[in-house]
Simulated assay, not measured.
Amino acid sequence: MQLIKKFLLSLTVFAVLLFSANAQQTSTSKKNALKEGSLEEQFEYISRISSNYKAQGKRYEVINLLYYEMIRSNVLDSILALEKQIDEAKSTIDIQKIDNIALQTQLKNTKSTLEITNAQKDKISLFGIQLSKGFYNVILWSIIGVLTFLLLFFIYKFKNSNALTKAAKKSLEEIEIEFEEHRRIALEREQKVRRQLQDEINKQKTNNKANNK
């Protein structure tokens, strides 16, 4: 009989220890579920393990205060995390707005610089006077045309003058030849006349001598 009592006592102690360990493991599992799961999973878990009762036609859920505090803390942490994410998103949006304003300002400055550059590119300074490229080209080609005309005119005049010079030189040579020929003929005539005159003088002298005898 005493042996049976000891056996029952041992069995009772073992059952109590087993139940305590199981309860502790279940409590730890519940705490892990409330710590690691998402909010939706945590609420589902609380709804699943909570007890309920009806009073006056209404249903009430009974939640363990410890679990309530844990899920409340988790909800507040999630809200704080979301608020932090929202603040960071707002800061990012503000920074992007500032960057967009800076980019728009830079774009306007670039467009203004490009317009000024194009305006300067389409104009050319001539003796300190800003002229459009088209008008400058008209002036430039007009000057080139006038200079080309003058060059051709001077070439024509030079060739014409050269031809006249050659003709005058040829005429002068012909005149010199004629003059030399005329001088030669005149010299021959003069010499002939002198010889005739000398002959007459000699003849007169001979006649005079003959008469004197």
Rank of each mutant, 00 (worst) to 15 (best):
Q2W: 13
Q2H: 14
I4T: 04
L8F: 13
L9R: 03
S10V: 10
V13G: 00
A15Y: 10
V16M: 06
L17C: 00
L17Q: 00
L18S: 03
F19L: 04
S20K: 09
A21S: 15
S27Y: 09
N32T: 03
K35C: 10
E36K: 07
G37E: 08
S38N: 09
S38F: 13
E41G: 01
F43R: 01
F43H: 00
Y45A: 01
Y45H: 02
S51L: 05
N52H: 11
K54W: 14
K54Q: 14
K54D: 14
A55F: 15
Q56G: 08
Y60V: 10
E61F: 15
V62F: 09
Y67D: 08
E69W: 06
R72W: 12
R72S: 13
S73E: 11
N74E: 08
V75L: 04
D77H: 06
D77C: 06
D77A: 11
L80E: 13
L80T: 10
K84A: 13
I86D: 03
A89V: 03
A89M: 04
I93G: 01
Q96E: 08
D99F: 12
L103G: 08
T105W: 06
K111F: 05
S112I: 05
T113C: 07
I116R: 05
N118T: 07
A119V: 09
A119K: 09
Q120D: 08
K121A: 13
D122W: 02
I124Y: 00
I124R: 00
S125A: 08
L126P: 00
L126I: 04
F127H: 03
F127K: 03
I129D: 06
I129Q: 06
L131K: 02
K133Y: 08
G134I: 13
V138N: 07
I139L: 05
I143C: 04
V146S: 04
T148Q: 12
F154D: 04
K157L: 02
F158Q: 04
K159P: 01
K159A: 12
N162W: 15
A168C: 03
E174L: 13
I177Y: 10
E178N: 14
E180R: 05
A186R: 11
Q196P: 03
L197F: 00
Q198R: 11
I201N: 10
K203D: 07
K205A: 07
N207D: 15
N208S: 10
K209P: 08
A210F: 15
A210M: 15
K213A: 04
